[in-house]
Write a protein that binds this DNA or RNA. Structure first.
Lengths: 212, 212
DNA sequence: GCTACAGTTTCGGCATGCCGAAATCTGTCG
DNA sequence: CGACAGATTTCGGCATGCCGAAACTGTAGC
């Protein structure tokens, strides 16, 4: 598989991310927001991606990945998550520091180097935030998970995944004692961790996934 | 020090490389050849670099680095060589395989990650090809060295440095038993390694440096 | 069934980095 | 000293990725 330009990889990765834990295809405007670009820019790029067979898109409709596009996206995600895991396990990074570094390295690392890293780490299948690391063949382990925001009050589960998007949030959570693997119950705008009630920042609702 | 764009780093690195083992400033045409670009492109870019205070250049003249430019160039070289050392020492690369990977990673690695790598390796001061690794403060250990091509017949010295530019050459040399640290005598279009005469590829003359 | 509006696309424009052809300069040789 | 060769620069052009303003769609609500 030929490597794509960083910009293309970012588009594919973002489209993929949108469907990883939910189901629906992404709209151009949502994609623009996620990428921090103007909608018109996204329209143009999506047209090129469609011409390249990476994405399918009908005018005024939502965007989804083709098989080829999905394969490329998964490869980028694999690189990102293996790099994050490596940074934490071997290079002395904490989990809230790895995102930006991985964001750059995911576009720079060769297959050869990635294989070395994977090997050294013993082929891990989760990164430090609980995200599944796609296998080299593109298969991704999938679990039933509920976004905290969408969980009903009283729901109890273990924290399966915490988005690495905001490092401030990760530090907050760490300070509150919430980590991947913690068991919590959902309360109104907060969460019960054992017997203590923990208030959460506003963006936690869309960043934490619990087991069903 | 603000990071520069990859293109700018490549220009600075190449200008620096030209003066690292010799003395004279580089001409626009030589720079164009090294970078694989048209001379007109180099002229334009050099104008921008000069405006940014990274390079000094008078019309129709040679190009040299300002103090700021040198500092940035040295930082890139440091990243490149530390990455190469890391790839060989920890990631199972051989010395002829590291160049291309380092060429990409030198633009992608943060100061934070570089510091971790440096630390893990115990602050090495040479890379696998014998090139000095600039210190974090920008100082570079310098040795008296003679380019093989310019060494007189009969000159005997140890191999201090072998350019990593051509991996084919590195493999040839390895097969011939020539490595950094080998002691050789210069003969006509060849070299004496102990008592065996070793013919060298044409490009070896500009790739190998011997102790004076 | 029609209309309004939110979302999407088109269009002209801008910056960057590159190229080739043409103009210009410099140093050298006669 | 003057003209030539080779190096350098200028100039017009091209591709990419981005933007804002304006034109267009499709659907939700009346």
């Amino acid at each position: 598989m030929k490597p794509s330009k960083p910009v293309v990889e970012d588009y594919l990765k973002t489209i993929y991310a949108h469907t990883e834990w939910q189901a629906d295809a992404i709209t151009p405007s949502a994609l623009a927001v996620r990428l921090g670009l103007a909608p018109s820019t996204v329209t143009e790029m999506v047209k090129k991606l469609a011409a390249a067979g990476l994405v399918s898109h009908v005018r005024y409709g939502a965007i989804s990945l083709t098989e080829t596009g999905r394969a490329k996206a998964v490869a980028v995600v694999r690189r990102h998550r293996l790099v994050e895991t490596w940074l934490v396990r071997e290079m002395g990074y904490s989990w809230d520091e790895v995102h930006d570094e991985a964001e750059v390295l995911e576009h720079a690392i060769s297959d050869r180097l990635l294989a070395s890293i994977d090997e050294r780490l013993g082929h891990p299948d989760r990164d430090p935030h609980g995200d599944p690391i796609p296998a080299a063949n593109g298969s991704v382990r999938r679990e039933r998970a509920v976004l905290l925001e969408e969980a009903e009050r009283g729901h109890t589960g273990t924290v399966l995944r915490i988005s690495d998007r905001s490092s401030a949030l990760l530090r907050d959570l760490e300070a509150s004692g919430i980590d991947v693997g913690s068991t919590v119950s959902v309360d109104e705008g907060a969460v019960l961790l054992g017997s203590t009630r923990v208030e959460l920042p506003a963006d936690a609702g869309t960043a934490i996934w619990l087991s069903a």
